[in-house]
């Protein structure tokens, strides 16, 4: 079994290299100000401190940015579910004229990156009056085509007889969706919610464009802006990175089975 041992060691080495940047981030965030700027670079804080976090939250308004990010990601998730679930189900199971053509058009639209329309979208939101507001940040999450296909893919497995039986019993289409379809779709709902939450939390370019008010910044925008003012303060910047990314890393660790399973299922079928 030496070949197995060697390959396990190789996997462990590769994993250690992969995780090193994230572990180093946490370690440096606990160092005294200035400690990381030495040679050779220290790996472990000699005298661990929370001073960097204290400065972030007490003097630099990190708590506000954290709250902003939580709010934006929660709203993005709820709105995406609200818009995507009925549409994904309708495209899978409801027979209506124009459905096939619509699905094909949506598939073609998947090829167009969202950034292509960013400038006109900005102008459009300026006309509506949504620039520099969370409504403006949330707008792209309403138009998530990938989410529609994720739900549709899952909804295709619902047996037609189940829906027909409910119809014969006199249930309205809304009742069927609410009481029969949604419970079946639960795994797809969880996967979609996780993807949208992580995606909106990590999103940078669009919030950077839409939000001009410093107090409205989400964590990535605030961190990038802090990085331009305090580039020399390595320990402070690492603490800011920890606050920005550790919430989603923990969420991923807690739900990794679902997350990776959802991605694997999607790529097998897709």
């Amino acid at each position: 079994m030496t070949a197995g041992r060697a390959m396990t060691a190789l996997a462990a080495l590769f994993a250690a290299i992969t995780l090193a940047p994230l572990l180093w981030m946490v370690s440096v965030s606990l160092m005294q100000p200035g400690e990381a700027g030495q040679f050779p670079p220290p790996l472990i804080p000699a005298d661990p401190t929370l001073a960097n976090y204290r400065e972030l939250f007490a003097a630099l308004g990190m708590g506000g940015f954290l709250a902003n990010s939580l709010l934006v990601s929660t709203l993005a998730t709820l709105l995406a579910l609200l818009f995507t679930l009925p549409a994904g189900y309708a495209f899978a199971k409801l027979r209506f004229s124009g459905r096939t053509a619509t699905v094909q058009i949506l598939l073609a639209l998947l090829l167009i990156p969202g950034q292509i329309g960013m400038l006109p979208l900005f102008l459009e939101l300026k006309v509506i009056g949504l620039v520099n507001s969370y409504a403006g940040v949330l707008v792209p999450w309403l138009a998530g085509i990938i989410g529609i296909f994720l739900v549709r893919q899952y909804a295709l497995s619902i047996p037609d007889e189940l829906l027909e039986a409910a119809r014969i019993d006199g249930a309205s289409e809304w009742d069927i969706f609410r009481h029969i379809v949604l419970p079946i779709l639960r795994p797809a709902i969880a996967t979609l919610a996780l993807f949208v939450f992580l995606g909106s939390w990590n999103d940078f370019m669009w919030p950077l464009i839409v939000l001009s008010d410093h107090d409205l910044y989400t964590l990535p925008v605030a961190l990038a802006s802090l990085g331009r003012e305090r580039a020399q303060d390595i320990e402070l910047m690492m603490a800011g990175s920890v606050v920005t990314t550790v919430p989603v890393l923990l969420l991923f660790l807690a739900l990794q089975r679902q997350f990776i399973g959802g991605l694997l299922a999607g790529s097998v079928k897709g």
Binding site: A87, L94, P120, A143
Partner: peptide, 27 residues
């Protein structure tokens, strides 16, 4: 069923038209 099909997909299609297709063409 036909009416439900359109009603269920209308909000998403409207959002896609307004905030994705229109800006892309407008580019």
């Amino acid at each position: 069923e036909r009416r439900a099909g359109w009603l269920f997909s209308a909000p998403a299609l409207l959002a896609i038209a307004l905030f994705f297709v229109l800006p892309t063409i407008a580019s």
